[in-house]
Design a protein around this nucleic acid. Structure first.
Lengths: 261, 261
DNA sequence: CTGATAAGTGTTTAATTTACACTAAGTATA
DNA sequence: TATACTTAGTGTAAATTAAACACTTATCAG
């Protein structure tokens, strides 16, 4: 039975403002028992030729001394993303980091204390941006762990990490987010290593470079081509071998590039 | 500074059970002011050659009389998905429906009454399964609206719907979820119409059919080929024209088929 | 000047995607 | 019973994209 557009779909014309104010004043927000809401942030970086994630050691029960994804309660007047960024900054000291919402985990039994719903985020930081990890306001230990060699994790955090890794791979495949894991200037080999580390498999150098759509310094750009990366005139001289040209992402804004890898 | 694997990563060997019980008893769950948590469910169906979504008319302030996505508070001992399914069933009377989590919307200002975080889901129902819409426990009106001709919506529900539509298109492109919108047996033209309605553009009949990977009745199946759909020996006889063969999805379980459309 | 090392570069083949138009099978009706 | 009408059903050629694969170049160290 379709009631398609049986009403005006406009705000009624007589003034409801007074009625509305009265209603809001009477509204009893405590009718329902409320869950606690936290944000957890899966913070990835590429370091030591490895995909690493930041974990903190729990100082309290439950799961005392086990490792966990950093997170905490959302303040009542704070957006979810602001809460997640606050956690991120507390742990890493880094601002202006790429972050996106991942999934909301809310099984009633996931925290033995009380009902806790967590909105999980994932973040990408450039290794060099991360200051010495803060000693931790909670006197918690914190450290980077390879996603390929994780310790046992508290709560359902192993699930959250799995999910984050899947999403990261997806994002790398279809977007240019990799720039979030690299300095502004990088060599193509460094970029390829990022992909190889995240996907955990070797890639063909020539095919990889073809898909990057590199705008070359000397050549005139093709008018309709969507370039992702451009050459610079700088080179990285290190080691006793041919120097590698440095490149940069043309657009350091997250962009979808369908079927990239 | 990487603290990789500086601990045993095992539960400490001395017994913490007593300490842990004591801690949990003392734990004061009310230290933090908690937001309300709701689930909202964007329920899509294909009806009248149109992609429609179920909306309910609000009976109370705020946004009294405006249309909204059905939803409600999550019970304290209920999983998020269970809450969403409860809302779905209250509105449509349908069980065993395809549903997935969409995104969590939590701007502090999104509900003028109090802090309400909503975990949005989207659901696909076959039009014929939906019983007459319930008159509504809250005496709310409910109705199906074309996603291409929506009324003004309460709260941030227009955003949620946008997001849901984007996700639906993505899912149709990369998976076999379309079977959730059709009866068990359907003609290929009906299936193509589903795609055309959701993507809101015409598709080429022959190319569309090629991508379906149809297992034909008379031909021996190729061993390695992943078939999505199979012919049946039944036909749909209606109208004064050649009857259309009925098909079915081989696997009525959500499956990823990369680059399907 | 020689050796070591990583950087850089094209071509061929296979697979996939796109564009495109006629025949087949039933019903209605003249 | 022949003809018109309607939707179902089918294949091929061209363009694009993806995959496999190996040698030359530039610098440093000795």
């Amino acid at each position: 039975m379709t009631n398609k557009e049986t009403t005006t779909n406009e705000k009624p014309e007589h003034d409801l403002e007074h009625e509305e104010r009265e209603f809001l004043a009477k509204y009893d927000a405590s009718r329902y028992e409320r869950p606690s809401v936290t944000t957890d942030v899966v913070i990835f970086t590429i370091q030591e030729q490895d995909l690493q994630v930041l974990l903190v050691q729990r100082g309290d029960h439950p799961y005392k001394n086990m490792w966990a994804i950093p997170g905490g309660f959302v303040n009542i007047q704070e957006s979810l993303e602001a809460g997640a960024r606050r956690e991120l900054e507390e742990e890493t000291g880094v601002q202006d980091v790429y972050m996106e919402q991942l999934y909301t985990f809310g099984e009633p039994s996931r925290d033995p204390r009380t009902r806790v719903i967590t909105v999980a985020y994932f973040a990408l930081v450039e290794a060099r941006q991360v200051r010495t990890l803060r000693a931790g306001s909670d006197a918690r230990a914190a450290g980077w762990f390879s996603v390929y060699r994780l310790p046992p994790l508290a709560f359902d955090h192993a699930n959250i990490l799995d999910y984050a890794l899947t999403r990261l791979r997806y994002k790398l495949e279809y977007t240019n987010v990799a720039f979030q894991l690299l300095p502004e200037l990088f060599t193509l080999t460094e970029l390829q290593r990022v992909y190889e580390i995240v996907f955990n498999r070797p890639l063909d150098k020539r095919n990889f470079r073809k898909k990057l759509n590199i705008r070359e310094l000397d050549q005139a750009p093709e008018p309709d081509k969507v370039y992702m990366i451009e050459e610079t005139s700088e080179f990285k001289m290190e080691g006793s071998h041919r120097p590698a040209r440095l490149h940069r992402f043309i657009d350091r804004v997250d962009r979808i590039i369908r079927g990239f890898i």
